[in-house]
Computed example of a mutant assay.
Amino acid sequence: MTVTNQQQVEQGDKKQKVENPKVKSIKDFYRRLKKNKAALIGFYTILILIAVSIIGPFLTSHDPNSTNVTERFQGPSAEYWFGTDHMGRDIFTRIIHGMSLTLGIGFASVIMGALVGIPIGIISGYYGGRIDNIIMRLIDILLAFPGILLALAIVSILGGSLVNVTIAVAIYAIPGFARIIRGSTLAAKKLEYVDAIRALGAKDGRIIFKHIMPNVLSPVIVNATLYIASAVLTAAGLSFLGMGAQPPTPEWGAMLNDGRGYMYDAGHIAFFPGMFIVIVVLAFNIFGDGLRDALDPKMKK
């Protein structure tokens, strides 16, 4: 083998050893996330909850809505892991089936809120002027209402159902996304390379989607994670008040309401759905805090 051929082979080996930038960035992100042990626990807890919500309903042996008055108020046992409620329904089965509903409301409402709030925030921040003033005043009006009261008013108008609860929580999430994206857009559009691209004749659409959008995604991801926790809590609160899921839907907030009248005689009816609401909300909150640190450029070394 000639020297030239040997050099070419060595260069080829070096090229093969070059790591994919995307893989490297994922590994770097995970490395920074591991520094926050609580965030890592929250991340794995979320993965477990999602997995259980998908495969759990196929593994339960009881019907979540099947009543058996002879088995009412049974405590936790080998047959009924979390006991039974006031109608003899297996609480463990209902929690497993309700997990997909609770997480589904959280993810769906945040996605809907982001799809509306992100364009509004970018338009407001990028164009400024009168458009910005009008949009921000409307956002301020929505923010003037406490989140649960705004969602409650919307559900009162639309009617009580899981779909309407999702819409109400999504509307409540829009102002938060819009304000965060507006602030990030105001900072991004002042960068020197954006001015240079605009001077070269780039259209607003190209600047927004290719240069502004990538710079504002990090706060969106963090905000979305934290809003899922808020969405789950709001949806559970609406169902607890009777404005969300309707009987016999196994939604955790509705289950909590069912056990409210039996706190002293059969406290397990309210304890287990309440415990899982706390677990979900806590997992997303601590994961969101760790995600903020992992995506913060100032934390990179």
Rank of each mutant, 00 (worst) to 15 (best):
A236E: 11
L238G: 03
P175R: 06
T70D: 12
I41V: 15
A168G: 10
I197G: 08
D289L: 07
I207C: 01
V169P: 05
G201Q: 03
L138P: 04
G113M: 06
I48R: 03
R72M: 13
Y44A: 07
F145H: 03
I181L: 07
K15V: 13
G42A: 09
I131C: 11
T60S: 05
D195N: 07
S161D: 12
G253F: 15
T60R: 01
A38P: 03
V69E: 04
R137L: 00
P273A: 09
K210D: 13
S61I: 14
T84N: 02
R292S: 14
S109L: 09
P21W: 11
P119T: 11
V165G: 01
A144W: 13
I157C: 09
Y80P: 02
Y264C: 02
Y172T: 14
S53R: 00
P248K: 01
L226R: 02
G261P: 06
E10Y: 10
R206M: 10
A229I: 07
A151F: 14
L282E: 03
L101Q: 08
Y80T: 05
V69N: 02
K37F: 11
F240E: 00
A231C: 13
M299S: 12
A196H: 00
I41F: 15
L162W: 09
L143P: 09
G274L: 09
L282C: 03
G160H: 13
S66M: 11
A231M: 11
I212V: 14
V280G: 01
N223C: 08
P273F: 14
P297W: 14
N285H: 09
R130L: 10
D195G: 05
L226H: 05
G274N: 04
L291N: 01
G290F: 06
I111D: 06
I148M: 11
L152C: 12
G125T: 01
A39S: 12
I141V: 15
L158F: 14
T60Y: 07
M1Q: 10
D28Y: 04
L226Q: 05
F92T: 02
